[in-house]
Simulated assay, not measured.
Amino acid sequence: MEKLNSIIFYNIDKAIRSYRNYAQRQLKANGFNITIDQWLIIKAILENPGITQSEIGDLVFKDNASVTRIIDLMVKSGFIIRHSHPEDRRKSNLEVTESGIKIIKEVQTLIESNRQLALKGISRKVLEIMNAALLTISDNCLNSKK
């Protein structure tokens, strides 16, 4: 019987979870009052003006309830403003505040440092191969007819 640590998908998940936990600890240790999920959502809004909450969820791999909860917290923290949608009351337009933009800029150096540590000892060529393989896995699963 195969061992867990010989299953590539187990190792991918373990790597992602390890990195997220490390990155969150670093944010907290450096005095930043933001979570990894909040950072991802702010980045999604900044990079995709007019994005809906369900599109954000798809982009950051979160369900709608989680996205709503995170956005509610960020509105309270002053990182995001929620505007009523002019044509559909069920929807809202999200805008990143100056405070939200500021924290994204402040955190950027730490994020880059976290990535450097996580990727230490892995050559550019190996990273390119790994990235291509991960994209192929995603494509295979997303485009499967079954």
Rank of each mutant, 00 (worst) to 15 (best):
L119D: 03
Q53V: 12
A65T: 08
H83G: 04
G57S: 13
E106K: 14
T109C: 11
F79S: 03
A15L: 09
I80Y: 06
F61L: 14
M1L: 12
G31E: 11
S77W: 00
I45C: 00
I81T: 08
R82P: 05
T109A: 15
K146D: 07
S66Y: 07
Q116C: 13
I111S: 12
E106D: 14
L27W: 14
L73M: 06
L110E: 01
T52D: 11
F79P: 00
K120W: 12
K3V: 08
K125L: 11
Y22T: 07
I41D: 01
L40E: 04
Q24H: 01
I12G: 01
E55P: 10
I104Q: 09
I81Y: 07
H83M: 07
K145A: 05
K146W: 00
R25G: 12
H83W: 08
E55M: 14
Q53I: 15
S6D: 10
N140Y: 05
E87K: 13
T52G: 13
A132N: 05
A44Y: 00
S77T: 04
K76N: 08
I137F: 01
V126H: 03
Q26T: 14
N48E: 00
K145P: 03
R20S: 10
I16A: 09
S99N: 10
R124I: 13
S123R: 08
N21A: 14
I12W: 04
N48G: 02
Q53A: 03
K105I: 07
Q26E: 15
Q24I: 01
I36R: 10
C141I: 09
L119V: 07
I7M: 10
E106G: 06
I51R: 02
I122C: 02
E98S: 10
S18R: 14
I71A: 02
R17S: 12
D58V: 06
L134P: 00
E106V: 10
S6H: 04
Q53T: 08
